[in-house]
Write a protein that binds this DNA or RNA. Structure first.
Lengths: 189, 189
DNA sequence: CGCGTCTTTGAGTCAAGTCAAGACTGGTGG
DNA sequence: CCACCAGTCTTGACTTGACTCAAAGACGCG
């Protein structure tokens, strides 16, 4: 069920404010969801990887925009009044509950992230990337600016944190889009 | 359905780590959920007010502790393997979806809060209290320390922010447990 | 009234932000 | 194949907002 859609780098999947008529499952690539803070800064709410669902809002309109970080393939699942259908369809309700719960978990995890120091935010972010990636060699599809906007830091601070972690051998082989993450008691800064 | 339970100030509803066998609906009073950060600080994840559900974790064990901020009355809803029952019970599944979604919304809102400056965090917190309270005269059941631990600030910074807001007439009648919140373009700091 | 607790205020410090160069990368065309 | 260019990333010097430490002030309860 659903139709596939290919997106090129930086292309929008959907825009904040438009009515939410589908949900999405990422097949390949990487997606980011964005909003704007009161002071005009870009906020990256979450990154999604293959297998993740995104775009589910139990709301009339999307509260965030979604964009492709790199060329990506998404499965678009039309969902006319999902909430209404879930009222009578047990399977759908269960599915939506699972997706909402995964999203809640991500939000709670991000909450904890944002309460740490800059070094810890970067370290925990990399650790999270490693976990979701499954291997210690992590392909970072996103730019330093993306990371900064996700962690609510500046690009300079992210860069300095990476340098520190590298010096402590908590990470290695750091390039623009790659990093090898070593465990070392959760990279504590 | 469910049984009532009375709690006195600072009494625990449940403790982090124990198995999650019930969900709770707050009848009267105020509840806070707590965890600890890696550096030993207390984190207040959320405050709950009458009508709110809390304690639902689609997880074996509670990830936070819940405590009464003031004397409170909660409805304890036994829920043996909620997730399993939701798999066959549509009404329950719908209910859980609604509760999970409310929790997600709270978490997302808190996320935005944490990305602001100290003054904005305090201002937005008060604005949120006003919204949930329904009137501009807000009874703050929690201490300054509770507010600080919720916003990831120090008690001194919270105090200074309140002083600033008072000077700008964004709030008035500030006492230990009360504040009158005026709108004034979202209290922007 | 007196005491303990909570809150506010002040002074100095430190972590992260800002501003400004400089270095690296990857893609393009000569 | 190399030189160049634009965009990205790193590093350094300085500033600033929030934290720490310290003390004084205000409640609220016995």
């Amino acid at each position: 069920m659903g139709t596939e859609r290919l997106l090129s780098r930086n292309e929008k999947v959907f825009r904040k404010g438009v009515s939410a008529s589908s949900i999405y499952r990422l097949e390949t690539g990487c997606i980011r969801t964005c909003a704007n803070s009161s002071n005009g800064r870009r906020l990256i709410i979450a990154f999604y990887f293959p297998g993740d669902y995104f775009g589910l809002e139990l709301h009339e309109k999307h509260l965030v925009s979604a964009e492709a970080v790199i060329s990506s393939k998404v499965l678009v699942i039309p969902a006319k009044s999902l909430a209404a259908r879930a009222a009578t369809d047990l399977t759908l309700a269960k599915h939506m509950l699972a997706i909402t719960n995964a999203e809640l978990r991500r939000a709670q995890n991000h909450n904890l992230l944002l309460r740490n120091s800059a070094n810890e935010r970067v370290a925990n972010f990399l650790f999270d990337m490693k976990q979701r990636n499954g291997r210690k060699d992590v392909a970072l599809f996103m730019s330093r600016q993306d990371i900064a906007d996700h962690l609510s830091l500046t690009i300079e601070t992210v860069s300095r944190a990476l340098t520190k972690l590298k010096k402590k051998s908590a990470i290695s082989r750091v390039t623009r889009r790659h990093v090898t993450v070593h465990l070392r008691k959760r990279l504590a800064a």
